[in-house]
Simulated scan of single mutants.
Amino acid sequence: MREQYRTTELSAADLAPEPIAQFTRWFKETAENPAIHEPNAMIVSTAGADGRPSSRTVLLKHYDRAGFVFFTNYDSRKGADLAANPYASLLFPWHPLARQVIVTGRAERVGREETVAYFRTRPHGSQLGAWASPQSSVIASRAELLARYEELAARYPEDAQVPVPPEWGGIRVVPEAVEFWQGHENRLHDRLRYVREAGPGSAEGADGETWRVERLAP
C-alpha cells in the first residue's frame, strides 16, 4: 500500500531560526487538526548497554528550549536503557498532515521539584497507577495489578495526597538534531534538519545557541 502525498513545499527559508520555534509552529497546526488524536504522542527509542534498541509510545508533557520532557518509571526498560546509554530519539508521527518530527539528543533526569509539580497535576487514578505498576516487570496476571491498585485506592482516597513514587520522574531529551519531514509525491519528500553547533554561518536562536540547517535526501 502506498499513498501519494500532495502538500506544500518546505524550504529552508520557511523555517524559524531555531528548532523549538519551528516545532511550536507545527505543533500548533497539528493540535488544531481534528484528524490527529493526541498530537503530543511520540515514539521514544532507546538502546541499552548491549546496543539492542527498543521503542514505545509516550506522551510529551512539556517542551521548551531546554528540551522535550516526558515522565516514566526510572526502573522501566527505557529508564534502565537511559541509565546505561543516555541518548534517545523521539518521533512525532503526524500522518494526516504527512509530517514527522524526529528529535535526537542526550537524555537527562529532570529535577525532583519539577517531577513533583507535574505529578500533582495528574488525575488521582493515574497517580495511583504510577505506584501500582512495576513498569516493564513481569507480573503473574492483570488481577494482581488490579488488586494492587485497589489496595492503594483504599490507602489514598480521592481527598488524600498521593506521594510521588521515588522511582518515578521526568526525562528531558536535550536536542542535538531536529528533523522536520514533509511528505511529497513520488517519494520526493522534504527533510530539513537542524543540527546544534557553535560557529560562523549558523542560525542563532534567542538563547544564544546556534543551529545549522541541512537538507537530507528523502
Rank of each mutant, 00 (worst) to 15 (best):
residue 2 R to E: 15
residue 3 E to K: 15
residue 5 Y to N: 14
residue 6 R to N: 15
residue 9 E to T: 02
residue 15 L to Y: 04
residue 15 L to R: 03
residue 17 P to F: 12
residue 18 E to M: 05
residue 19 P to F: 03
residue 19 P to T: 02
residue 21 A to F: 10
residue 24 T to K: 09
residue 26 W to P: 05
residue 27 F to Q: 08
residue 28 K to Y: 13
residue 29 E to S: 14
residue 34 P to G: 10
residue 39 P to H: 08
residue 40 N to G: 03
residue 42 M to C: 03
residue 45 S to H: 05
residue 46 T to R: 03
residue 51 G to Q: 00
residue 56 R to Q: 10
residue 56 R to V: 10
residue 58 V to R: 00
residue 60 L to M: 06
residue 62 H to E: 12
residue 64 D to P: 10
residue 69 V to Y: 00
residue 70 F to T: 05
residue 72 T to R: 02
residue 73 N to S: 01
residue 74 Y to C: 08
residue 80 A to Y: 11
residue 80 A to K: 14
residue 84 A to C: 13
residue 85 N to V: 06
residue 88 A to N: 12
residue 89 S to L: 11
residue 90 L to C: 09
residue 94 W to E: 05
residue 94 W to V: 03
residue 96 P to C: 07
residue 97 L to P: 05
residue 99 R to M: 15
residue 99 R to F: 11
residue 102 I to N: 14
residue 111 G to C: 00
residue 113 E to S: 13
residue 116 V to C: 01
residue 116 V to W: 05
residue 117 A to W: 07
residue 119 F to K: 01
residue 121 T to W: 01
residue 122 R to M: 01
residue 123 P to K: 06
residue 123 P to S: 03
residue 126 S to C: 09
residue 127 Q to M: 02
residue 128 L to D: 00
residue 131 W to H: 08
residue 131 W to Q: 02
residue 133 S to G: 06
residue 134 P to Y: 10
residue 135 Q to H: 11
residue 142 R to W: 07
residue 142 R to P: 05
residue 142 R to C: 04
residue 144 E to R: 11
residue 144 E to K: 09
residue 147 A to E: 15
residue 147 A to H: 13
residue 148 R to S: 03
residue 149 Y to A: 04
residue 149 Y to N: 01
residue 150 E to K: 10
residue 152 L to N: 08
residue 153 A to F: 08
residue 160 A to E: 05
residue 162 V to E: 00
residue 164 V to N: 03
residue 170 G to A: 11
residue 173 V to M: 06
residue 177 A to S: 01
residue 177 A to K: 00
residue 178 V to T: 13
residue 180 F to W: 03
residue 180 F to L: 06
residue 185 E to D: 13
residue 188 L to M: 07
residue 195 V to Q: 04
residue 198 A to F: 13
residue 199 G to S: 08
residue 199 G to V: 13
residue 200 P to C: 11
residue 202 S to M: 15
residue 203 A to T: 15
residue 205 G to D: 07
residue 205 G to L: 03
residue 209 E to N: 14
residue 211 W to Q: 07
residue 213 V to T: 13
